[in-house]
Each structure stands twice: as C-alpha cells, then as structure tokens.
C-alpha cells in the first residue's frame, strides 16, 4: 500500500437528468460495471442501466411467513395447551377467530422486514462514505445529478473515465478520494 490517498472514483456533476442518463448509458456501454448515479429523486430511466439489488421482495415474503407462523403457533399454544378455556363448548382450536391476529402479525413482520431489509441492503446506517468528501455533494440531495465511475472497476483509468464523462458536458468533473 502506498502512503498516498487512494482514489474512490471520478465524478461528474450535471444540472439535468438527461445528460446523466446518457452518460450512464455510455459508461455501461464501454464496459464499466462500477458506475453509480446520485440523484435528488429516483430517476426511472436509470433502473435499466445501472445495477441494483433485487432481493428485497424475498426478504419481505420471508418476514410475512414468519409473522403468520408466529401468530398461529402462539395462538394455538395459548388457546389449546397453555391456557385452555371452554367457552360455550367451542373447540379449543377455534382457528376462524385466530385469523385476525394471524393477518395482523403477517403484515407487521413483513413491514418490519421491508424497512430494515431495505436499510440493510442499502448498507445503511453508514455515517460516512467517500462521496461525502466531495464538497458539492450536498447538491445531490437538492437539485443536481452526479455520476461516479468508481476506481475499483477493473477497467478504471482516471484519464479515460474523465474524458468519457466530459463528453456529456457536465458542470464539472472531479476526482474523489477514498478514505
């Protein structure tokens, strides 16, 4: 390892979403895989261009199934084994009256899995990230659009990446340090 600061990537800042999408498409066409866009709102067109994780629905399904099983086993255990009560001679396992709580816990567990699953897949909480080293990065959450070609991409070479991004007339192209 050299003592010098590692490079995280080359970043272009755009005022409009259109050149950002074009630049992202061009970067992918050139074979870059580690490309990430930072935008103030979800830009739909990027969905088909850049890579993203797709496993959240499965996590939510597992949460829902767990919630259902928790409710069912809890109700069965309490009503039949732990604290059986004879109410008007009805069966101890009166499953139709257990449905409501099964439904509620299915939703509850699935929602909790959705929320925390999203954070986990996003890699959050992450108080610091190299992108925050970029002074102008506060515009990414307000009005400007950033595209980063990351240094860990095997094809990465600072000059070529800068040249590629410059073709789309960004406001400015920066290098961002890793730390």
């Amino acid at each position: 390892m050299s003592a010098a600061v590692q490079l995280y990537g080359v970043v272009a800042e755009f005022e409009d979403p259109t050149p950002l999408v074009d630049a992202a498409r061009a970067a992918r066409a050139q074979g870059y895989n580690k490309v990430e866009a930072y935008t103030p709102y979800p830009v739909e067109a990027l969905a088909d261009i850049l890579e993203s994780k797709k496993s959240l629905p499965l996590i939510v399904l597992i949460g829902g199934i767990l919630g259902f099983l928790t409710a069912w086993s809890m109700e069965y255990y309490i009503a039949v084994i732990d604290y059986p009560t004879n109410i008007g001679g009805r069966p101890l396992n009166s499953w139709p009256s257990f449905i409501v709580i099964m439904f509620e816990l299915t939703i509850l567990f699935a929602s909790i899995f959705a929320f925390f699953g999203m954070l986990a897949l996003c890699g959050l909480p992450m108080p610091h990230h190299p992108m925050f080293n970029l002074r102008r990065f506060d515009h990414a959450s307000a009005d400007h659009f950033f595209l980063c070609i990351e240094a860990r991409d095997p094809l990465f070479e600072t000059g070529a990446a800068t040249e590629l991004l410059n073709r789309f007339e960004p406001l400015q192209v920066w290098t961002v340090d890793d730390d």
Binding site: T39, L46, L50, S52, V60, C122, A140
Partner: peptide, 22 residues
C-alpha cells in the same frame, strides 16, 4: 447516511411499494 444513489432509490421504491401493498 442516505446518499440518494441509484441503488438506494431502487430499494427505497421497492420498499415503499411493498409497504403500500401491506
């Protein structure tokens, strides 16, 4: 530590839709 990256937004949209459906 939200960064608004494309990866974040995609997951955020999926999570919002799933939560809406629930």
């Amino acid at each position: 530590g939200w960064r608004g990256s494309n990866g974040h937004w995609r997951l955020h949209e999926t999570a919002s839709l799933l939560l809406a459906g629930l």
